[in-house]
């Protein structure tokens, strides 16, 4: 099974401000998450031997134990598998952001892979299980390297 063709970079939606606030925690870039957080396009790890998709990335394929793994672009589309509203902030930077939503999103083109994200720019009725969503990217700057981050998030289709 081959992943869907990637969307064009110039068509991606970008948010200038982050859903949880521009001062909220940024991901620390590592080899296994760099694709996800910087490309402006969703990349998921696939096994070149058996084609299994794996999210988050792992050093070894869980299906065939191959180490021949690569990141492949997938369409920035998904479905809300679950979503909750967080009312109690457990980090001081979230104190004035509650309530906010957190969702589990199944990724189109990466069978079995579910990502965590927020549903942004959406009416309350759109934030529900079964809703189709597409990727939107939050712009930020990595404080270590000064590199631009494009953090995938989601909006209702």
């Amino acid at each position: 099974m081959h992943p869907a063709a990637p969307c064009c970079l110039d068509e991606i939606s970008i948010m200038a401000n982050r859903y949880l606030g521009d001062s909220f925690l940024l991901p620390a870039l590592e080899p296994d998450n760099r694709h996800w957080f910087t490309n402006g396009q969703l990349h998921v790890q696939f096994c070149n031997s058996c084609d299994a998709a794996r999210y988050p990335a792992e050093d070894v394929c869980f299906r065939c134990q191959s180490t021949d793994l690569e990141f492949r672009a997938i369409a920035g589309e998904g479905v809300i598998e679950s979503v909750v509203e967080v009312q109690h902030p457990v980090h001081p930077l979230l104190a004035d952001r509650v309530p906010y939503n957190v969702a589990v999103i199944s990724l189109s083109g990466a069978p079995g892979c579910n990502a965590i994200g927020n549903i942004v720019n959406s009416d309350e009725t759109d934030v529900s299980i079964g809703q189709n969503v597409r990727a939107i990217f939050e712009k930020a700057t990595d404080p270590e390297s000064g590199e631009e981050l494009l953090i995938p998030n989601w909006e209702a289709v």
Partner: peptide
Amino acid sequence: AWTHTYGLIS
């Protein structure tokens, strides 16, 4: 990185 970035913490 995969969770806290999105406010999924506790």
